[in-house]
Structure formats: structure tokens, C-alpha cells
Design a protein around this nucleic acid. Structure first.
Lengths: 242, 242
DNA sequence: CGTGCTTTTGAATAGTATCAAGGCCGGTGG
DNA sequence: CCACCGGCCTTGATACTATTCAAAAGCACG
């Protein structure tokens, strides 16, 4: 636990020198960047740890400094669905913003460093920095567009197409590992099923095997390599995916 | 056509006396309400008419003064899905905002009067009225929440539950006709299938028949009356619907 | 070297989509 | 006013897909 604290101290970053170029605080006036820098808190989450849970009060906004996070929704009889996957530079908890409690859960997929800014500060920053409010509004509009795209997929795709589209999604968000060229995130079959919106991990296994036989992907354990990206994209292409 | 023009003239409304209390222009300063009032254009759309089509340039925002509108997405082999249904007081085309082209179509479900404000004006209004920008941001956040809720439904519900939830959705959005107590909108079975996200209108027919047999709803043609709302809600309750 | 977890495979079952055909209703034109 | 047409609704049968159950194999970890 004490090394965790030292780790946190080591990783504490300053907004001005923060590597996230897209962080929304960058849209603020210089004095407000300074204010946010001072008022923000940074928390280090270990892999698997919950960042927030559905039902908790929304106390502010989270900004991912580094790491990977899954946003899940617990539904009927405890069945989980991955609503979104977020990585460095993304905002977290914005779905609950304007509401009292979170509708979803967020958990770290791997060790992650999260900046947190309280509601009052955020609200003041919005009012004082219309540019930031505006760019966040655009961000929401784009998020909306993306969720609607996923909604359409869920409505129209069959199981195979859903699983394939979750692969292209992961590939787009995380890219590939420079060395072995596998997708740069490791999820269990069950998590992929939750992301793809198919009922069981068995389905994912079967479809992965088909794709291996067709020489479109290869796998060893949780590491997945896309061999024939063209063929993969061809499967989801009719739905306007890329 | 000439009576259409006269109809438009008759219906032209002034923002200051506009019956929509939730219209976002109300969040502007008085002088900006006046500016928007002058610069807005009002267009009357007949039932079935397209308001915009996917692929068109986003030239501004639409505000529904009166009427009912469906927002649809054309997917694989021309199959349509209803992404959203909007009525008086709602904003239209906000999904495309911040992008160049619309990702979806919008068509009038019945005769509708739509206010339109150009991008430049809207942008200026945003910058000059942070309160409005803020409240629109909250609106987006809530929309996002709702779409995610629908996404979850699509991922977890079976056909029956999907159809039922589209009924409760329509009931919530449009309410019931004061006289015959039927849901205050008339959609074809096919449109309900597109809204519910089930493949065919036959499915809807079958499930409607089941519900009639169970004394939960009654129907005559396109008019649908909810008899046992408790039973209806009970079906979708496990998914956090209401 | 067991113990518990994830992955894999097979088979049975339930659920959904699709096809085909008949019935109903409103509108049109004779 | 009636007959006809086309669209929508309805029903049944069938084929297909997806889900679930069961069980074995692989793997990490103490």
C-alpha cells in the first residue's frame, strides 16, 4: 500500500505539462488551466478496480490520464454489457453528468491514472470558459453519434458480425502492439461477448475459430492478431463501419 | 399549394409568445431571443415528408414547434431502423451537429411545424449565451444516457420485451388520446418493428396478439390501447425501464 | 499435484427470421 | 353504388440461428 502511494506521487502530473493534448482543460484560459491543475485530484487505480459504480452520486468528472477503462451496465439478472471502452485522453462519467447518480459502472482494465474534478469546479469552469463548454458539447454530440452507430449494429447485425465489429473496434481504439502485432488489449472471451452484445463466451470462441480457419485472425490465449484486415472490414462494411 | 402557404403564414409563431417553454432559445438573453426570432425560418412539413436525409450537409439546427418526427437510420440492404422519435419541444439534427453531414434521416410522422436556425447564428448564440450552451450540453448528456439505455435493451431483451418496451416508450413520449385512451400516435406494424429493433412486422403482429390474449392491450387497426399498464411495465422492469 | 479459472467442443433446445398465402380495409374508377 | 386494386395486417409452416447445458481440456497458481 505504501508503494502504491509512492507510485501515485511519482505519477502526479501537472496540467500544463500533461501529455494529453486533447484534454478539455486545454480549452480553458491559462488562469483556469492553473485553477484546474490545483483543484484536480489524481487517483491511481489498479487493474480490475472500480472507478465508480452505478447508483453512486455523480460528484464530478473523471479524465483518463493513462490506462484503459471499461464502462459497463449491469442488466437483467446481473448480466453485464460493456457500453464503452475508454483510454488515455477520454472523459469518464460524463454520462451521469446533469444527473444525480451514475447509470453505469466504470472499472480499470489495466493500471490507470485518473484525474478527477469536482462538480462545482467543473460548473464554474463551464460558465467562465464558453469555448470549453462548446467543445464538450461537440464531444457529446460525437459520442451520441457513436452510440447510435452501435445501436444500429445491435439492431441489424448477426452474431458473427457483432463479434467481428468488436474486434475492429478494439483495433481502432487500442491499435496493435509494436512487437507481436497483436491487438493492444487483452480481454477474456466473456468480456468480448459483453462488448459485442452476444449472450455467451462460447459464441465468441466458435466465431474466433471460424476466423482462424479462414485465415483472417490468429490467436494464442488472449492475444489476438489480425491477419487479413481487409477481409475483416469486409464483413462489417455493409453497416457503414470502418 | 397555395393553401399550404396560407397555412404556414397562419402558423408562423413568435419566439416570445411560443408555447414551447423548454425551447432552448428561452435560455438566451432577451436580445438574443429577439435575434433568433428574426433569423429563424419556419417550415411546414406534411405527413411523410423528409425533413433531412442522411448525407446532406448540416446547415443548422431544427426545433420542433409542433408535430411528430421519426429519425431513422438506413442500414444493411436498405433496412431502416427508427433511432428516435421526437415531438414538440425537441431538437432535431443535433446528432449531426459538429459534423459536416447528417448520419440519419428525419421524416414527419404527421403534419409538423419546424423552426430552423442556421449554423452561424447558432454558433454565435452559443458563444454569447453560455447558459444555453450549458443547458444544451446537459441535453446531449441526457440523450446519450437514453440511447445507451436503448443499446442495453437491444443487447439484453428478447423480441417480446423489445416490442413491449417500444410500446411503453411510445406511451411515455406521446401519452394517450383523451377520448378513446389509445396511444396518441399511429404507426404501422413495420414502423413499430423498426423502432423495437425486431426483424419483421410479423413478429410485432404475433406479440400484439399474445398481449391481447393476455388482456394487457387491445387494438383496432393502428390504434392501440394499454389496458394493464402494470403488467406491461412488469415485462420490461428487470431492465431498469419505466 | 491438486484447485479453480478460462477456454474449447459437442449436442440439445429454444427462439427468431423468413417465406408463402389468405384476409381485411380504404381508395379509385367505372 | 359496386367491383377492383394495392397496401397493410394476419396466420401458419419452415428453416435457420442463437442460446444453453454439459463436459472435457488447458492453464496459472499456490
Amino acid at each position: 500500500m505504501s508503494d502504491l502511494n509512492s507510485m501515485m506521487k511519482n505519477k502526479q502530473t501537472n496540467c500544463i505539462s500533461c501529455p494529453n493534448k486533447n484534454c478539455f482543460c486545454k480549452k480553458c484560459s491559462p488562469e483556469w488551466v492553473e485553477i484546474l491543475n490545483k483543484r484536480k485530484t489524481q487517483i491511481f487505480y489498479r487493474k480490475g478496480q472500480d472507478i465508480f459504480v452505478a447508483g453512486q452520486m455523480v460528484l464530478g468528472l473523471h479524465f483518463i490520464q493513462s490506462g484503459k477503462v471499461k464502462v459497463t451496465s449491469t442488466g437483467y439478472n446481473g448480466r453485464e454489457q460493456i457500453v464503452r471502452i475508454a483510454t488515455a485522453g477520454h472523459i469518464l462519467g460524463h454520462r451521469g453528468y446533469g444527473r444525480e447518480i451514475y447509470p453505469v459502472n466504470a472499472a480499470a482494465l489495466e493500471d490507470s491514472l485518473i484525474c478527477f474534478v469536482e462538480n462545482d469546479t467543473i460548473y464554474e469552469a463551464f460558465i467562465r470558459n464558453p469555448e470549453m463548454t462548446y467543445s464538450l458539447m461537440i464531444f457529446y454530440a460525437n459520442e451520441l453519434r457513436e452510440v447510435e452507430s452501435r445501436l444500429k449494429c445491435q439492431m441489424q447485425m448477426n452474431t458473427r458480425e457483432k463479434v467481428v465489429s468488436s474486434l475492429t473496434y478494439l483495433n481502432k481504439v487500442f491499435g496493435i502492439h509494436p512487437k507481436d502485432k497483436t491487438i493492444n488489449v487483452q480481454l477474456s472471451r466473456k468480456e468480448i461477448a459483453e462488448l459485442a452484445g452476444v449472450s455467451s463466451d462460447e459464441q465468441v470462441v466458435r466465431i474466433f475459430n471460424d476466423l482462424v480457419k479462414e485465415n483472417i485472425i490468429s490467436k494464442s490465449g488472449k492475444k489476438i492478431k489480425i491477419i487479413d484486415e481487409t477481409a475483416l472490414l469486409k464483413i462489417v462494411e455493409p453497416f457503414g463501419m470502418g
